[in-house]
């Protein structure tokens, strides 16, 4: 079909409109949802075995995955380091439910780490 015919065809216009509605609905819903009630995850104060966290809070909130990836490459592929790891977070933040899952469940971002790395949901003491 020629382009004019496509643009003018009513059936095609309806199909495109309905598909766009279906595809964009989740996005719109979440935008509206965030605008009216953004998720506010609450991280419990940790058990302070160390004075400070490895980096400051705002860095960790946005860049903890970059830090972990860097340390991981060092530890696995170069055999260095290892003081800071997924395991060492556990020394202060003892429960995954109160820590990682708070934000990750709120934004529905799957974390692949804990299939292999040990991090209990509840505080095990």
């Amino acid at each position: 079909m020629k382009l004019n015919q496509v643009l003018g065809n009513r059936t095609i216009a309806i199909v495109v409109a309905v598909s766009a509605l279906i595809i964009l609905f989740p996005l719109g819903y979440s935008v509206v949802g965030v605008a009216f009630s953004p998720p506010r995850p609450f991280l419990e104060k940790p058990d302070e075995k160390h004075e400070n966290c490895v980096r400051d809070t705002s860095y960790m909130r946005f860049h903890h995955m970059d830090l972990l990836k860097e340390l991981r490459e060092e530890a696995v592929r170069e055999g260095k380091g290892g003081e800071i790891s997924v395991n060492s977070c556990r020394e202060c933040h003892t429960s995954r439910k109160q820590f990682c899952n708070q934000c990750h469940n709120a934004v529905n971002l799957y974390v692949d780490c804990f299939g292999c790395h040990y991090y209990p949901l509840e505080d095990e003491r």
Partner: peptide, 10 residues
């Protein structure tokens, strides 16, 4: 046991 080697090195 690369993990043990890493900890030994440290």
């Amino acid at each position: 046991c690369a993990a043990r080697i890493r900890k030994w090195r440290k």
